[in-house]
């Protein structure tokens, strides 16, 4: 995976896409390894969805080149790419049955009816929707529609499967269930999955590699724990998991060498030793409490286990920052 000579499933080199004066994607270099479950994470308008559409072929880059398994994609229309997409709104054809939706890919490729219907049944079985062939998309629940969209996108056996905010429209319980299912499906099929999300917890739990997008650029690429534990920039520290960004002056007050640090709220301990502070806000989150503590002129978010008891606003606490808890960032 780390061998630079190995063939990338998707490779971007200096890719830019502008809409008028807006640089939606601005000079992006990207390598996605075959078989990866790759997340493109970022706030809305950060360019992640445009990147996905560039891979699918719905957009053409204004500059730079895109390769899919070594094949240059310049000027290749979406219908000639071995890439399929699960759309955010699922985009199921409302005038077709579920079976016809799933069999659409083989149908336009001229696969005989019996063969493509058998194949559609296989795919529907894969997503646990056997027997739904004759229903209409309008008769399905949100979760079922998403499975149909997934089966339809997988029937052409794409080399890369693109998922645009795949879980965005589902409720929390279903979302957690689908996270597990998508993950195991990807492992079974061995297809490269690339998914776009603005939800950092979704990216951390599903992906084996994450690219964090901001303002049309990739600011950091790495394994989930790497991105979470060792953010390289202020943006990543803040966006992925709401870390404390410790400014150089504040770092000195915390006894650290002068520099910019990321300090995870869950790494700070509330106890009998350390810096004296007062609780400013407190947020009960079930298993834990998230409190903001004022230490002199500095503000630090701290996560404390709920069994530690209530932390009323204004109460005096002591903060202990264990050695090595703070991670030093570039500029």
């Amino acid at each position: 995976m780390t061998d630079p000579a190995a063939l990338s499933a998707v490779r971007f080199r200096g890719v830019s896409r502008h809409f008028g004066a807006t640089r939606a994607v601005d000079g992006v270099d990207l390598d996605i390894a075959p078989g990866a479950f790759f997340a493109m994470l970022g706030p809305s308008g950060s360019g992640k969805t445009t990147c996905l559409r560039l891979i699918a072929g719905f957009e053409q880059p204004d500059a730079g080149s895109i390769e899919i398994f070594g094949a240059p994609m310049t000027g290749v229309p979406p219908y000639r790419r071995s890439v399929n997409t699960v759309f955010q709104d699922y985009a199921l054809f409302p005038h077709m049955t579920v079976g016809a939706n799933v069999a659409y890919g083989p149908m336009v490729r001229g696969v005989p009816r019996a063969e493509r219907e058998a194949r559609a049944r296989e795919l529907l079985a894969l997503v646990a929707l056997s027997g739904f062939e004759d229903r209409r998309p309008a008769q399905l629940s949100g979760g079922q529609r998403q499975r149909v969209a997934l089966a339809r996108a997988l029937i052409n056996e794409p080399k890369v499967l693109l998922l645009d905010e795949p879980l965005g429209a589902l409720d929390l319980k279903l979302r957690e269930q689908m996270q597990v299912e998508l993950k195991s499906l990807q492992r079974r099929l061995g297809i490269t999955f690339v998914f776009v999300t603005h939800d950092q917890s979704e990216a951390l739990s599903m992906a084996d590699r994450i690219a964090v997008f901001n303002e049309g650029r990739i600011v950091q690429v790495g394994a989930p724990d790497e991105v979470y534990e060792r953010p390289q920039t202020r943006f990543v520290a803040d966006f992925v998991g709401g870390s404390n960004v410790v400014e150089p002056d504040a770092a000195e007050r915390l006894g650290l060498p002068r520099g910019l640090y990321s300090l995870r709220p869950e790494k700070i301990r509330l106890g009998e030793i350390g810096f004296a502070g007062t609780v400013e806000t407190t947020l009960y989150q079930g298993a834990q409490r998230r409190v903001v503590v004022a230490v002199g002129s500095d503000r630090l978010a701290v996560v404390a286990p709920a069994e530690r008891g209530p932390l009323p606003v204004g109460s005096a606490v002591r903060l202990f920052v264990p050695p090595g808890a703070a991670h030093r960032m570039e500029g």
Binding site: F58, P78, Y79, A91, F93, H95, Y104, G105, V108, A153
Partner: peptide
């Protein structure tokens, strides 16, 4: 929804097939 046309192209249908199977029925 515009993504219906994109979904059709994505699944391998060219412009004419997309018109015939997706746009025209709509």
């Amino acid at each position: 929804s515009g993504s219906l046309v994109e979904a059709s192209m994505d699944l391998g249908a060219d412009g004419f097939q997309t018109f015939r199977h997706v746009v025209l029925p709509q």
